[in-house]
Write a protein that binds this DNA or RNA. Structure first.
Lengths: 344, 344
DNA sequence: TTGAAAGCGCTACCAA
DNA sequence: TTGGTAGCGCTTTCAA
């Protein structure tokens, strides 16, 4: 059995309470005694038993809240799974976690959930955020109050949030560009499609892509088109482009709409000749990979995005340990027909 | 605060001890009383507090051992990190974990470590195994003794091990083939290189690759060559092949030796024209990706391979929960220049 | 500044 | 078949 605070107390000729105060710098202990205790602890390699700590902590009741927007999407459902995992793990440490799911993106609803979770007693919040002024202001307020906020999946970069856990969209765009270059060593014509022009993540996915292909002289880029996440728009854009440019060899789409793209390619009988690179490994995309309609899908590690923010808040609130970095980027996963099973 | 066994005891008009026995089917409880208790627990949604459980368990002292072979390799070092993570997590549940690292592959050393860990009191073992008869026999013995073994990274399929956590090598080979097809839509000549012919994992990586390219009429496969994990052999094989077959467009190597391959391609001034697909994202391979010598690296989630076996043993020994499947395959990660940073 | 003791929730043991 | 109780290691009162 490892060394306990009791043993240290006996060796130092003091009580456990004194040992506790000395080792955790809680004050109310004479410097000499504290020094003696710390020396003994050091020599014995004392490490507080985390179970004992958890037991006490459960009594104090640290509570954390998580707020998910767009909870209806497959990706956010995966994020939710990660959050529930974290909740389960933290339960072992005496922490309660409450998860709130919001349909769609709605700053007003987020603000309401923040209030509810605060009333419930949350000491920290993980939020799939927006960068909207109202939300940024609220996060800053929370920061003032000493309630740390970690954003995930979507960031609020203008706010005083503790950190962000999510995809590096620019880098993901570069990764997509790398794949396109591998597929088109002799060059070719490429059509980039974005979702909303003002969606920060989609825009970065586009920028990274364009920047990485800039110096690839043999690859020609058509002007990018917004499809507003809609399959019908994407279909029309793709069909029109195919008719205007029969030599098109690749479509890159940063958002939803990939089904419209694939359908247009089939309609024009160009399947297999025109490659498609899309985002997020959900059920529809799995099927499109299997059928060969999509060549590659870039995926984010959704599980981590739900899990890590809560873990980070816990460590921050308990030990004051801040996250290693402000921007914690999750891995960029490349999916093909062969590695998109769900065995992971 | 959540429901406690005490509360249930009061409602049922019995003692906590009785509640405990009833809810965990430990016997020595009359059927009627047990039923009443279970009903109340059900209604109140009782879930035993895992911290309390951990506190008691720490006293009983469940111990788990992990044995790593080839610990000197970068991949196994990552596996070791995962094992240490699990050790840390399990400490919260009152479990002690001891990790033993072995240089190279050596069944005799593994057998010795098994004995040492048993003497130390291990109730379950995670082993980066071989399928050698001696080791298989020992694992079967352990099974008889009630000491479960989970293999990881490398399996002992002939033994009565509880499960295996590692890469699906055949599938990884298929994945590599898929990448090659994307890179060579118009076909081309491909050279497969394996490590040792009798290494099960390397052989499966080869088979999956060959099988997936069988019906790709436009891609031509040269007979595969063994390089015995050596850069010099791989260099010679590649150089020779390049001279004999100037049209070579791709090399697939299932083992170490990738540096030799890349060097040969540079020596023959074919860099950029001949693509290389290799395995395992370690430091040298990261560099080769950055420099464009390698097009793709297939990576296994080494962290999981160290972590999950221990978690599985814990759940198995504690609750009798067996793993979901016997073969727990880790994700197959595709790495390129752009997504091989170490931010994950 | 220090000590003593309570108590977190659970399981194991002993006694009835 | 049951109940009672000790005790895991820690933190946090409350007293001294």
């Amino acid at each position: 059995m490892a060394v306990t605070s009791q043993q240290i107390a006996e060796l130092a000729g003091v009580s456990r309470g004194t040992v506790d105060r000395a080792l955790h710098n809680r004050g109310r202990v004479s410097p000499e005694v504290a020094a003696r205790i710390q020396k003994i602890a050091e020599e014995l390699g004392y490490r507080p038993n985390s179970i004992g700590q958890a037991l006490v902590r459960a009594r104090q009741g640290l509570r954390l809240g998580a707020i998910l927007q767009s909870a209806e999407t497959p990706t956010m459902q995966d994020v939710a799974v990660g959050a529930r995992q974290a909740a389960e793990e933290l339960r072992l440490s005496g922490v309660e976690v409450e998860i709130r799911e919001i349909q769609g993106r709605d700053t007003a609803k987020v603000l309401r959930q923040i209030n509810e979770l605060l009333d419930w007693g949350a000491g920290g919040l993980a939020i799939a955020s927006n960068n909207t002024p109202d939300l940024v202001r609220r996060i800053d307020q929370l920061y003032q109050q000493g309630v740390p906020v970690a954003t995930f999946n979507t960031d609020a970069p203008d706010s005083k949030r503790l950190c962000f856990v999510g995809m590096d969209s620019y880098r993901a765009g570069q990764t997509a560009a790398g794949l396109v270059r591998q597929m088109l060593p002799n060059g070719g014509l490429v059509l980039p499609i974005a979702g909303h022009v003002n969606n920060g993540a989609h825009y970065s996915r586009l920028r990274g892509f364009l920047d990485a292909l800039k110096d690839a002289g043999d690859i020609q880029l058509l002007p990018f088109q917004p499809c507003f996440d809609r399959d019908d728009y994407a279909h029309e854009i793709t069909q029109h482009t195919l008719r205007e440019n029969p030599s098109l060899s690749c479509v890159y789409i940063t958002s939803n709409g990939q089904r419209g793209v694939c359908r247009a390619i089939e309609d024009e009988r160009r399947k297999g000749r025109v490659r498609v690179v899309a985002y997020d490994l959900n059920e529809p995309n799995r099927k499109l990979l299997q059928s060969g309609d999509l060549s590659f899908v870039l995926d984010q590690v959704a599980l981590d995005q739900g899990r890590r923010p809560l873990q980070i808040l816990y460590h921050y609130l308990l030990n004051g340990t801040p996250p290693e970095k402000e921007l914690l980027y999750t891995d960029i996963l490349i999916r093909t027909k062969y590695n998109s099973g769900d065995e992971a």
